[in-house]
Design a protein around this nucleic acid. Structure first.
Length: 281
DNA sequence: TTGTGTTTTACGACCTCC
DNA sequence: GGAGGTCGTAAAACACAA
C-alpha cells in the first residue's frame, strides 16, 4: 500500500470535533472525516451535509471508518448553476457557495475541478464527433471523384482503342487498294465499311489474302474490346490526316488524337506512366 | 445477492501565473 | 513562494444484469 492509499483511509469522526447527523430519510452518516495516516492527522477535514445538520457533536465515533458520500441533489443543482455562470471559482464565490451549501470550501473547489474535467471530456467527445462527420463527408466526396475518374479513364481507353483500329484499317486499305491510295489521301471509312470492303476483295478470288496481315485482322475483329498491345504498332504506318467521318470531334481534339496515333507505339510502352496521374491510390 | 461497470468525490503531483 | 489550475488515480457510491 503506497502512501496515497494510506492517506485515503478515512476515520469516522474528526479531531475537529464535527459531527453530522442524517438528513431525513437519508441513511448516510454525515460524519466528519480525515486520514488515518498520523503524518496527515493535522490535515483532517470534516464533511458536512448542510449547515443545519451540524449537531450532536459528541455522537461521532472516532473509531469508525469515514465514508465518502455524495452531495445532495440540491447541492449539485446549485453547483451546476454556478458552474454554468462561470466554470472558474474565485475565492469569494467559493466561500459564499460553501457557506450556502454547508460544505467545506475545499469541497466546492474539488467539485469544480472535477466538473471541469467532466466538461472537458464531453467537449473532446463533441469535437471528435464533429471531426468524424467532417472526415466521413470528405471521404464520401473522394469516393465519388474516384468513381468518376475511373469512368472517364475507361472512356478514354475505349475511344483511343477505337480510333487506333481505324488507323489500322486505313493503312490496310491502302495496301490492298489497286492502285494504292496516295499517302496523303483522307481515308474516311468506318471499321464496318472496311470489313465489308476487305471481305468483298477476298471473296473476289483476286488472291488478295496474301496481302492481309493476319494479326491486323485480329485487331479489326475486336474493335470494342481491343486495348493496344505490343503487336499492333508494326501494322501502323504514317497516319497523317487520318480521320473518321463518324467522329464528331473538334479540330483541337483531332490534333490531339493525331498525336496519339503518331505516338501510339511509344504510348504502348509508356501507358502506365501517361495515365499515372489519374490514379490516386 | 453478487459481480461488474460507471460515476462521483477526493487527493497528490506537477505546472503556471502573479 | 503561494494560490489555483490540470492530470492521473484511488476508492466509495451507485446502477444494473445475471
Amino acid at each position: 500500500m503506497d502512501s496515497t492509499t494510506t492517506n485515503r483511509l478515512f476515520f469516522d469522526g474528526s479531531c475537529h470535533g464535527n459531527m453530522l447527523v442524517l438528513g431525513s430519510g437519508d441513511p448516510v452518516l454525515r460524519g466528519s472525516r480525515s486520514f488515518i495516516n498520523m503524518e496527515d492527522s493535522l490535515k483532517r477535514r470534516p464533511f458536512y451535509s448542510s449547515s443545519d445538520e451540524l449537531i450532536e457533536e459528541e455522537f461521532y465515533d472516532e473509531q469508525l471508518p469515514e465514508k465518502k458520500r455524495r452531495l445532495t441533489s440540491e447541492q449539485v443543482h446549485l453547483l451546476e448553476k454556478s458552474f454554468e455562470t462561470d466554470n472558474k471559482l474565485e475565492p469569494d464565490r467559493k466561500t459564499q457557495l460553501a457557506k450556502k451549501l454547508g460544505l467545506q470550501p475545499r469541497q466546492v473547489a474539488v467539485w469544480f475541478q472535477n466538473r471541469r474535467a467532466r466538461w472537458k471530456t464531453k467537449q473532446l467527445e463533441r469535437d471528435y464527433d464533429l471531426l468524424k462527420a467532417s472526415y466521413d463527408s470528405l471521404h464520401s466526396d473522394y469516393d465519388d471523384i474516384v468513381k468518376e475518374n475511373d469512368k472517364l479513364k475507361s472512356e478514354v481507353v475505349s475511344l483511343t482503342g477505337k480510333l487506333q483500329i481505324k488507323v489500322v484499317a486505313g493503312v490496310e486499305l491502302n495496301q490492298i487498294s489497286d492502285p494504292p491510295l496516295p499517302p496523303e489521301a483522307n481515308v474516311e471509312l468506318t471499321v464496318m465499311q472496311y470489313n465489308v470492303k476487305v471481305e468483298d476483295r477476298l471473296s473476289s478470288g483476286s488472291g488478295g489474302s496474301d496481302v492481309v496481315d493476319e494479326e491486323c485482322r485480329q485487331l479489326v475483329d475486336s474493335v470494342d474490346s481491343y486495348f493496344p498491345g505490343d503487336d499492333y504498332g508494326q501494322c501502323i504506318g504514317p497516319v497523317d490526316g487520318v480521320q473518321s467521318e463518324e467522329d464528331d470531334i473538334s479540330d483541337d481534339s483531332r490534333s490531339y488524337f493525331s498525336d496519339v496515333f503518331a505516338a501510339a507505339p511509344e504510348q504502348n510502352h509508356q501507358e502506365s506512366e501517361t495515365l499515372g496521374w489519374w490514379v490516386w491510390s
